[in-house]
Simulated scan of single mutants.
Amino acid sequence: MASLTLGGFSMTVRTRPITRTNHKPCRISCVQWDPEGLYGPPQTGHLARREINRRLEKDAEFREALEQQAREEKQRRHSLRQSRVIPDTPEKLIEYFLDTEAQEIEFEIARLRPRLNEEFFSQLQFELGQLRFAVSKTEEMEDRLIELEALQKALKEGTEAYDKMQGELVKAKKSLTKILTSKDAKATLLEMVEQNELNRSLLTLLDENIASANQGKQKEAAAFMEKLRAAVLKYMTV
């Protein structure tokens, strides 16, 4: 109970305590509330970045595994090449090539090119003739005939490609010497364009010289060769 006086009148007012039966604590319903723009736009994509990083790590591991595999394969081939004994007769040389892995044929052709002469191919043709015109052929003979025919084709095409490459390499060396010893490199290049002396073999030779200069830490020589290569490439496409 409480007394209240208003305008000379007095009255009694019944009072009772105020209770809040449904009162809930105040809390922020929006965590991104930023009316003043103090924090900038909300940042998203955290999961995406983590996924990208994870993939990059996996890619790095994959590249490292491939590089390791390549190193091991290179070492295996080097060891295999060193362990093989080169035969001294055409008959044994045929067997040598039959036992050569397909990816090593090109290397063996380059290494044994002087041995792949008329005498060798005559022996190969002789063995092929014996198998082709045999009165009775066994399955083993048929298989060997197929192998020798494939070998003959591979060696003929391989030696032709090797000889052509060597001829182009000789020309490329002459062309490079011509450029390096000329007083006016630009005029020399234009002259060589007219004579069709600029080709991919020259670029390959320049690449080899650049790699050799970089390996020997000859920076000035490497830079000069790179400029020369760019000029050759430019005039080749004119």
Rank of each mutant, 00 (worst) to 15 (best):
A2H: 12
S3N: 07
S3Y: 08
S3C: 08
S3P: 10
L6D: 07
R14L: 07
T15S: 10
I18P: 03
R27D: 14
C30W: 11
W33F: 15
D34M: 04
D34P: 06
G37V: 00
Y39Q: 09
Y39S: 12
Y39R: 14
G40R: 01
R54M: 11
E61Y: 05
R71Q: 09
E72P: 08
E72W: 02
K74A: 13
I86K: 07
I86W: 04
D88A: 13
L93D: 00
I94W: 01
E101R: 13
E101F: 08
A102K: 10
I105H: 02
I109V: 13
L112Y: 01
P114M: 03
P114D: 05
E118W: 05
F121D: 00
L128C: 01
E139A: 11
E142L: 11
R144P: 03
I146N: 13
A150S: 11
K153N: 07
E157W: 05
T159I: 11
L169E: 15
L169Q: 15
L176Y: 06
L180G: 03
T181Y: 01
S182T: 07
D184T: 02
D184W: 04
A185S: 13
T188H: 01
V193S: 02
V193D: 00
E197P: 05
N199R: 04
L205E: 04
G216L: 05
A221P: 01
F224T: 10
A230M: 10
K234G: 08
Y235Q: 06
Y235E: 06
